[in-house]
Amino acid sequence: MTTTAPAMASTTASAATAPPTPSPRRGGRRRQLGWAVLFLAPSAVPLLLFSLLPMGVSLWVSLQQWNLISDPTFVGLDNYRSLLADERTRASFWHTLTYIGGYLPLVYAGGLALAVGLNHTFRGVGALRTAYFLPVVTSWVVVALVWQWLLNPSTGLVNHLLGLVGLPQPGWWTDPAWAMPSVILASAWKDLGFVMVILLAGLQAVPQELLDAAKVDGANAWQRFRHVTLPLLSPATFFVVVISLINGFQVFDQVDVMTGGGPAGASQVVVGQVYDLTFRYGSAGEASALSWLLFLVILAVTIVQVRGQRRWVTHA
C-alpha cells in the first residue's frame, strides 16, 4: 500500500493537467484549490450573504432616505450630517460613554480584587470561582429583569434594606438621574466574573521568582503588587479594557429591558437609537448611518488603544 500510493498520486496528478502544460505542480495546485473550495464553501457562503453583503448594503442604505416601505431616495451624506447636528445623537453617545465610564472602573477594580483573592490555593477555591462566574452565563434580559426587581423603588429588596438602615431610597430605573447607574450596577454584577477570569489567568502567569526576588530586595506586599504584579498584569488589563470598550459602545440588551432608554430618554444609548430610528421612526437611512458612525468610533478607539499600548503594556 505505502509503495503504490505515491505512484497512484502522480498518475492522477498528471492526468488532471495533461494537455496544455504537463506540470504536476500546477495540477496539484488546481486540485488543492478544488479541495479548498469544497472545505470553505459551508462557511464562506453564509459569511458572504449574512456578513459581507449586508455590510455593503448598510453603507448604501446610509446614503438613502428610506422608510423601508416606499422607494429609497439618494441623499448623499445628508443622513450623516443631520445625525451629527441632532442633539439626540450627542445625548445617546454621551449616555453610552457614561455607561462605559461607570461600568469599566467598577468591573476592573472588583475583578482585580477577586482575582488577587482567588489566586491562592485553599480548599473550596474552585467552587468560589465557579460561583463568581455564574452571572456571566446568564442572559442580559434575565439580568435586567432580576435587577429591575431588586431595584424596584417601592417593593424592591435593595430599597427595603436601605430603608432599614435609614439611607435614602433612590427611584433607581424610574428616575432619570438614577436610570444609568441602575444599568451600570446590573451590568457590573454580570461581568465581574468575566474580568476576574481574565485577570486570574494573567496573575497565574506572574513568575513567583520575580516576587521572591523583590521580597529579598526588601519590597513590602504593596510595593511588590504595585511594581511587579501590576506591570506584569498589563497585557490582561489591556485585553479587558479593549473588550470592555468594544462591548460597552454596543450596549443595548440590558438598557432596553431595564429602562427602554428612559425615563424620557435619560438612558437612550447609541444602539437603542439605531433600533428606534429603524423600527419606530421608519428612518432606515439614518439608522444605518448611525451604525456606521458607531462602528467608526469603535474602530478608532480600538486603534488608538492598540497604538498606545506600547506606553503602558509590559510584555514579560
Binding site: S51, V61, L294, I298
Partner: peptide
C-alpha cells in the same frame, strides 16, 4: 463587523 451594523440591512434582505 458588529451586529448593530448588520441589523438594518439583514432585516431588509
Amino acid at each position: 463587523i458588529p451586529l448593530q451594523v448588520l441589523i438594518v440591512p439583514l432585516f431588509i434582505q
